[in-house]
Write a protein that binds this DNA or RNA. Structure first.
Length: 431
RNA sequence: GGAGAAGUACCCAAGUCGGCUGAAGGGGAUGGUUUGCUAAACCAUUAGUAGGGGCAACUCUAGCCCGGGUUCGAAUCCCGGCUUCUCCGCCA
């Protein structure tokens, strides 16, 4: 959520920033609602002050034996006017909040305008493997090795699902363990959150109301979820859970930064996005991911973003995979994010780099939606925290990259040394 | 899932048949007095927050789980919801 005060003070600045992500906004309507709202508040508060005063007078006058029926009659009208104004104010606030809630975050100053084509590669690590033999794509490799069973996955869950089996399950779980171990070393707190979340969680994260069609939802008895078509949903990423941990809280300045990570499967509809080249596990309805989230002081969030990018990179490097880091252009950033770096791993079969981690700084955008604050010692005032998140990492992109980049001519795949203690093997071979 | 009970400030807790109670009383915390040190005692302070107006001093409004309603006036009455606790049922 953007700051209404900022829009009121400098609407052009906000509009210009949003224009970078190809989001054209006209604030004239919003500003007139805001103006009307404030005028009404002023009026109605005068009336309320009067009502409070008269209500205090009535029992006193009564005691003196005065007739108060005229006064009461007069106040009846005041009560009606107050009610009418409050209703109008409520309606305006609904409009204002609805308008603001639909707006994406402002890109940071150093984020360039435009879409993907303006993304900037800031770092490349390693080199794409050169194969002296006809190399295979990950679907063929993992099927031949018996690591992933696509056919039975579809039988069980429908299109877009697979199942890990045997060494495949071990390899998948080894990745998760490796990530967990590294985050623990760095002092992050391990969280296992609910996988079913309330609507409010999606709202705070900035996924709702705009993208509420992308998640699997649960219908619930009415009365919950406040006008939404559903009240609970299955999380599309652990970020949605982690960023809500401190919703509606005021943290101590000393507690920051809060550093969390969580493992969860991620459930996404991915409706209509299946493409032939995204076969296999590149884009499924369910994939495993370890997610990092930080709550920081506003002045520390840039540094925290660098830390998160560094951590995600270290994980990929630890596996020995060739990757690059891109700084995203405004339009390619998630709606809640002011700045995003993608860590992209090389997939030989696709001949492209594919995102394995997205590290972003939401600044105060999510904090304002979720009312997540801290008490600033120096001023004794509450301020919004900054929230950041980064995958660390998504296995579903790492797994294919790993088997594709490391494959040998005979179809076997060596297990990266850091994973061997969990897989229990140095090489995966077909039986 | 069924039946009861409860939700008041940092914590506990009182709130009488609706009216100077935006909240008695404890505890805790903070400051002070006393004091060789500690303990104890005593005194004082202690909603936080959000939203308006004002250059400012300041002032107003909201706020007793949440949302509605009744009323001149609601912590108090009515309706809906959420959460917690106890008992029963069901179960990994």
């Amino acid at each position: 959520m953007l700051d209404m005060n900022l829009i009121r003070e400098d609407p052009k600045k906000v509009a210009d920033a949003l224009a970078k992500r190809n989001c054209a906004v006209d604030f004239t309507g919003l500003l007139s609602w805001d103006k009307e709202r404030r005028e009404l508040i002023y009026d109605v508060e005068q009336l309320k002050a009067k009502r409070n005063k008269v209500s205090a007078d009535i029992p006193r006058l009564k005691k003196q034996g005065d007739d108060v029926s005229g006064l009461m009659e007069e106040m009846k009208g005041t009560g009606d006017r107050i009610r009418a104004s409050d209703e109008r104010i409520g309606a305006l606030e609904t409009q204002i909040t609805g308008f603001l809630a639909a707006l994406p975050n402002m890109p940071a100053d150093d984020v360039v305008a435009g879409d993907k084509e303006n993304n900037e590669v800031v770092r490349v690590w390693g080199e794409a493997p050169v194969f002296s033999f006809p190399f295979k794509n990950h679907v063929d490799l993992v099927t031949a090795l018996g690591l992933i069973d696509y056919e039975r996955g579809v039988k069980l869950g429908g299109n877009g699902f697979w199942l890990y089996r045997g060494d495949g399950a071990l390899l998948e779980w080894a990745l998760v363990n490796y990530f967990i171990e590294e985050h623990i070393k760095d002092g992050y707190e391990f969280i296992l959150p609910p996988h079913i979340l309330t609507y409010q969680c999606g709202y705070t994260a900035g996924q709702f109301p705009k993208f509420d069609g992308d998640v699997f939802t649960l219908t619930q008895p009415e009365g919950r979820g406040e006008g939404a078509a559903f009240s609970q949903f299955i999380l599309p990423t652990a970020e949605t859970a982690l960023v809500n941990v401190h919703r509606d809280e005021v943290l101590d300045e000393d507690e920051l930064p809060k550093k969390y990570f969580a493992y969860t499967p991620c459930y996404r509809k991915e409706a209509g996005s299946a493409r032939a080249e995204e076969r296999g596990m590149i884009r499924g309805h369910q994939f495993n991911k370890v997610e990092m989230v930080q709550y920081t002081l506003p002045e520390d969030s840039d540094r925290a973003l660098a830390e998160l990018v560094g951590k995600a990179e270290r994980l990929v490097r630890g596996l020995g995979l060739h990757y690059r880091v891109s700084k995203l252009a405004a339009e390619d950033c998630g709606a809640s994010m002011a700045k995003t770096f993608d860590i992209e791993v090389w997939l030989p079969s696709m001949g492209i780099y594919k995102e394995v981690s997205s590290a972003s700084n939401a600044m105060d955008y999510q904090a304002r939606r979720g009312n997540i604050r801290f008490k600033r010692k120096a001023t004794r005032k509450n301020e919004l925290v900054h929230t950041l998140n980064a995958s660390g990492l998504a296995t579903s992109r790492i797994f294919p990259a790993l088997v594709e980049q490391f494959q040998r001519e005979d179809g076997s795949v060596p297990v990266p040394p850091v994973l061997q203690k969990w897989v229990g093997k140095e090489v995966l071979t077909s039986v």
